[in-house]
Amino acid sequence: MSGGNGASKTGCVVVFYRPDSACVERANRLARIHPVVVVDNTEQRTTPDFLGLSPDIMYLPIGENVGIAAALNRGIEYLIKQGMSNALLFDQDSEPSKTLLTELPELMTGRTAGGERVAVIGPAYDDVRLGGVAPFVRFRYLKLERVPPEGKQLIDTDFLITSGSCINLQCWREVGPMDESLFIDFVDLEWCVRARNKGFRVLGVPWLTLAHELGEAPVKVLGRTYPMHSAIRHYYLFRNAVALMLRREIPCTWKSTELVKMPGRLLIYALLPENGGSHLRMAIKGLYHAIVGRMGRL
């Protein structure tokens, strides 16, 4: 696996979980531009040939679902061993443009070459079901500050979603790996907070977007659209939110906004989906597990 010249010593990590042929084709397209490592969380082991992956792709089958954080960590460690300086991270359903794939690493390399402490750079995400391109966010008391993705200047933000982001691998040892105890939700937020606490910047690129769907079919309540998830995802969402609230290093600004939102979310997820009772039970189970410190995979 070779990353090319200095400006493009960039590899991609793609996390698979029960991928279909479209996921495989997306990974193959990535491999035409950057070296790619696929970390497969699918429970049943298979081979890259059986899936139809390009022979240029490094395939790491785990044989169990170890969670998004653990899968990303394994892929990133592999890229570091290959001498990469940047890592582009993707979910299996992400469809990045060629512009995003080339421009994000170039922006990162340009910033860090002069000694600037940047941990991660990422695009705005575009979920047409939730109203289009989402703003970048900064943590404020009781309410997030939403920064429109406009202009030609990079935007300091408090966190970026994992998929589509470009991590500076020079800072990986200092910041540390993704928190595997969270398993899936808030993994990106926790890592970005840790990076910022260590003096690194988290930068949004307003002129680049990535099509990305959050959760399942969203619901609309009082004019606002909320992403809907499965009951098991609501377990992780509520558990990890409370677990992070209990950590001293997480900003009180973020904690305050989560506390304000939580009762309304519990109500929405209990009343609106089919089998709302199971959603409520899983959310409450998550809250309890956070308080008693039961983390990792359910």
Results as ranks from 00 to 15, higher is better:
M1I: 13
N5Y: 05
N5I: 00
A7C: 05
A7M: 15
K9M: 15
T10H: 08
C12K: 02
V15S: 03
V15W: 02
P19L: 05
S21P: 01
S21L: 05
A27Q: 04
R29N: 10
A31M: 07
E43N: 08
E43G: 01
Q44F: 02
I57Y: 02
P61Y: 05
E64D: 12
G67T: 09
A70Y: 00
I76Q: 11
L88M: 14
L88A: 05
Q92H: 12
S94W: 07
P96E: 10
E103G: 02
G110F: 11
T112G: 02
A113L: 13
A113Q: 15
E116I: 02
V133M: 03
A134P: 01
A134C: 04
R138F: 13
T157C: 15
I161L: 14
S163K: 11
S165I: 07
S165R: 08
N168W: 13
R173W: 04
P177Y: 01
P177A: 09
M178G: 03
L182H: 03
I184N: 06
F186M: 13
L189F: 08
C192V: 11
R194S: 11
K198L: 15
G199N: 08
G199W: 12
P218F: 09
P218Q: 06
G223Q: 08
P227H: 10
I232E: 15
Y235I: 02
F238H: 07
M245F: 00
E249N: 14
T253E: 15
S256L: 02
V260M: 03
G264L: 13
S278P: 00
H289F: 04
R294Y: 05
R297L: 02
